[in-house]
Design a protein around this nucleic acid. Structure first.
Lengths: 340, 340
DNA sequence: ATGAAAGCGCTAACAG
DNA sequence: CTGTTAGCGCTTTCAT
């Protein structure tokens, strides 16, 4: 186990001072071309890499970016944020940062500052979906940049990577209509009011654009499996069930599809389904689920880029990801021809 | 943005020297009880946390643990290692380490040393499934601990967290037999010879234990979707197709099930399926897939624990995870009663 | 264009 | 039991 080289060793070998070596490593000018090349030569030959702990201390930078999340949106249990995380991870490499994942614990109904920032071990944080105002303030005070991915709340002091869910819902619903459906039910979570509003608005506008009216008990919300089932039961209760169901996220569509199949519905022959997100699982369903694809990986990339721009002193605007990329699979077909 | 406190500030406030503060922070003894309490008091009051960059430099430790993976087993695209990573991450908290994810690029058909170790920015690495001998050697030379998760190759110099795939395959196959099946096909990947051997052995032993013989064209391997399909075609080609298919991993079972359904087979009425792993997706299939559950989260936890033990100078043995936890779902039922 | 020297905040001998 | 001091390996004034 040979001792690691230091900048001083390199300096000796190249017969210059440590300062010069530091300069060339950091690409600063003010170094004679020949000297620079000589140093570069030695560095290449020795495979020298500057000790990162030391740079961290000197530069008061951690070269870490955190991804902070609450249990519900852990990239390790939520397939949406799983892809987002991948995006920020991939992009982080380009900037020479480590990504460190930190779950946020809730104590007394408010989130703790991620321990990674308490330790001063992060230069920026990307929050997934939610964050406490207090946490954001603490970050601002420490002057560490933050961005939010897939945030649904009121405008905030930090830039966000957003999805236009109204648009997505509109596109999904319009697709159903274009396939000939006029009896379309709406199923969404409503735990996050803003999300619900966006999605419902998109749905409503699509229907209105085609002068379609639906019975009110076809508009349902559900935040867990039990609620989904009872919503579904109410939707199919009438004598004339809908021919299609719009679901605000794929997860819900998957749950709903499974349940209605147990109730004897054939998908899509009896009833069509469409969702939003296009999570990895959707393509494996039976039938594979049509969905409005959200490029989650790209959201992660954008988040990382926002962080970097903030670090460079910019004050970037929110970015909104393409929200109308319809993925056609087999869960949607024309409505059954009715004879009554 | 108030300046961060240093150990020196705390020392002044508590009217002791920085050394004493350092001692109490690091839980060393040789500090008077009252002094210790006084210092603790100040620390609590101020919310002081020692600058980690500084400790890193002084102690020559990074307080980072890496998870290294090739593209095929990226936790962000492979649902098996996705759960493993979660386990490592959860456990790392207990030890105060960051987890940093590093993909390994292949250049000239061999993997590069993860950049995180080149930079000296990791105290240990968890490799997912594969690793080059050369990389392991480089690590050994730098004296940084490594463990392997779900490794299938010949014995190595580093401890591994293993699955007993022979046992898992045995349990899965026996379940099929217990349900009355005697016409059972075998489908496995064979990209990793050791894995194939284990799984096949388990399958074979279960059959032999019940004196079951099967036609040889029911023993198939496939490493991508096209191969899966052609394997399946060959399996169902004869006049009397099997009543059940054992698949070496859930992914394969999912693919196979989907394909055979398009061929008009009803699952499980016409043909039963069982897999190994119990990945997150399996429960959402139609029908939900029976599987031998591998506790992937626990594998991650064990990996982290192995790393820690190596750091403490131990020379731990491999650990093998429970491999016979049968999860009964709806993809297996009794074989159709035959009348011919 | 180059070098000397200070200092980042901590830990760990070593003295007392 | 407590304090002094010397680094850890780098970056960055400030001279030259």
């Amino acid at each position: 186990m040979s001792k690691r080289l230091t900048i001083r060793d390199i300096a000796n070998m190249a017969e210059v001072s440590p300062t010069v070596v530091s300069f060339v490593i950091n690409g600063k000018d003010g170094v004679n071309r020949h000297t620079r090349e000589r140093v570069l030569e030695v560095i290449k030959k020795t495979g020298f890499t500057p000790n990162i702990s030391s740079r961290r201390l000197t530069m008061k930078k951690s070269f870490n970016i955190g991804i902070a999340f609450t249990p519900e949106v852990s990239p390790f249990s939520n397939l949406f944020f799983f892809e987002v995380a991948q995006g920020v991870l991939d992009k982080s490499k380009d900037y020479g940062y480590n990504i460190v994942f930190t779950g946020m614990e809730k104590v007394n109904n408010k989130y703790h500052l991620p321990d990674i920032v308490e330790k001063g071990d992060t230069d920026g944080i990307v929050f997934l979906m939610t964050v406490d105002k207090a946490v954001l303030d603490a970050l601002a005070e420490r002057n560490i940049p933050a961005v939010l991915v897939d945030y649904h709340g009121p405008t905030l002091s930090v830039p966000c990577v957003k999805v236009n869910y109204e648009r997505a819902a509109y596109v999904a619903t319009r697709h159903l209509i274009e396939q000939g459906h006029r009896d379309i039910a709406f199923l969404s979570q409503n735990g996050v009011p803003n999300f619900y509003n966006q999605v419902f608005t998109g749905f409503r506008k699509a229907l209105e654009a085609s002068d379609i009216m639906i019975p009110l008990h076809w508009i349902c919300s559900a935040n867990d499996e039990a609620q989904t089932i009872s919503a579904l039961n109410s939707i199919i209760a009438g004598k004339k069930p809908p021919t299609a169901i719009f679901c605000s996220i794929d997860n819900l569509a998957i749950e709903a599809m499974a349940y209605l199949k147990t109730k004897g519905f054939r998908v899509p022959e009896d009833i069509s389904f469409i969702g939003i997100d296009d999570i990895i699982m959707s393509q494996y369903m039976d039938p594979p689920l049509s969905s409005v694809r959200i490029d989650k990986w790209e959201m992660g990339v954008q988040a990382m880029e926002l962080i970097m721009r903030i670090m460079e002193g910019e004050k970037p605007d929110d970015v909104t990801i393409c929200s109308d990329n319809l993925i056609l699979r087999r869960s949607v077909t024309a409505p059954p021809t009715q004879n009554r």
